[in-house]
Nucleic acid binder design. Structure first.
Lengths: 230, 230
DNA sequence: ACAAAAGTGTTAGGCCTACACCCATGA
DNA sequence: TCATGGGTGTAGGCCTAACACTTTTGT
């Protein structure tokens, strides 16, 4: 038998952190999953995550496990819900603090085949281990809510992007279609986009304007309180 | 020495649930606190809460502890953040899942002096135990955010209320002043208020109209998606 | 040549905001 | 009689939503 050296007067649950990692390939929202190598739910797909160590916060745990399991280093994850159903893990009582993060797909490719991590489009998600289906549903809802208030979409795009890439992203996340002209106007009126290059003199009608996110203007705007409506 | 009969291969944190209970007395938002009877932070004020049992969810724990410590039974609490700083409790590693709930002050009076629970107006909050100051700050932010999207304010008011009571509540939560006519128009246009009584024939200009919250109309509205803007 | 991508502007309707007067009551 | 609370409507500005054509490029 294993040694069990950590003893308490009352029963303690195990605590894990899980990570729902969103990416965007220009067309669809994708989610990063790993295939479990051990029981329970061996060979099933699940979110990267694992047991919290006694000297780290749940956020630190989420980032550490993410890197260990997928090679992906992110600067920030955001917790969004704690799942505590009594029987959500067959091994022992486990509560998990679920986090999400947005990453640029381009910056990640490395981790994919070295590890057993893979990106899945939202409509191709396999059946997931534990209660991870539920975690995903709630994560997607949070993402939808949040993108209406903060320009988090830019974290999913390359630094320089076209207006239609941005529109595609919003349409993919919110599962809605927008009128192109209205979307342009709304985004430009917000004032948080800067043109990323001189428009060449020989600008054809066909070459799209490149933008970048203007964090400085956004900070000013945020102070005053604002809201993106869709 | 106490017996320590619950043993694990790896160290486990303790898990607690805490409750930020909001009430409204017609003028100001209040919060329910209890005075701690034991160390650590003996005699300091804190949110009701306590250790999760191994066979209950964090939400069940929150409701149980709330009732044990204040006599207050609530049907629902909502978790809003999990605090996991490594040293937030001097006894052992404790992570807490913080919840909030809105209650009608009128329905609570019982518990107050039997227990050592007391209501505090937001500007009279004493210094709190643990990291409960931080928990309160975040709870208040969530409340502000949420009241702009869902008519949770009605949970704080008596079933039948006047428009100015409702306006006072919104002004207290959001710490803003609204134009009375605009507030009336906005609320009535939403269509989630019903007049609670016949307007008497001898209606004087001075007797206010009584309303009640119309959950049915709200449910219809919610399906279509809506938003309260302030 | 045709389909697909991208740039561009106007109009009508709805919503938000700001604002003032009258009446009744209680002190 | 005066202060307070409460009911009520309008006008201007801003935002939103709907909507079409032209240019260019690649096939």
């Amino acid at each position: 038998m294993e040694e069990k050296n950590y003893c308490y007067k009352y029963p303690h649950p195990a605590v894990t952190s899980d990570c729902v990692i969103f990416g965007f390939d220009g067309v669809a929202i994708k989610v990063l999953l790993i295939q479990r190598g051990i029981e329970p739910y061996k060979d099933k797909w699940a979110f990267p995550g694992g047991f919290m160590q006694i000297d780290e916060t749940v956020e630190e745990c989420a980032k550490r496990e993410l890197e260990e399991e997928t090679g992906l280093k992110t600067t920030s994850v955001e917790q969004f819900y704690t799942f505590s159903d009594v029987n959500r893990d067959p091994r022992e009582r486990v509560i998990t603090v679920a986090h999400y993060a947005l990453v640029r797909l381009e910056e990640v490719k490395g981790g994919d085949d070295a590890m057993s991590a893979q990106w899945f489009a939202m409509n191709e998600i396999p059946s997931l281990a534990f209660d991870h289906d539920r975690i995903l549903r709630i994560a997607v809802n949070r993402l939808k809510e949040r993108i209406c208030f903060e320009p988090i979409g830019f974290e999913l795009l390359p630094e320089i992007f076209t207006m239609s890439a941005l529109q595609n992203l919003y349409e993919a996340i919110l599962e809605m279609k927008f009128d192109r002209r209205n979307f342009y106007n709304k985004m430009l009126k917000l004032g948080i986009l800067s043109e990323a290059e001189e428009r060449p003199k020989n600008a054809s009608r066909r070459t799209p304007i490149k933008y970048r996110f203007n964090a400085k203007k956004y900070a000013e705007l945020k102070q005053k309180g604002f809201r993106l409506e869709f």
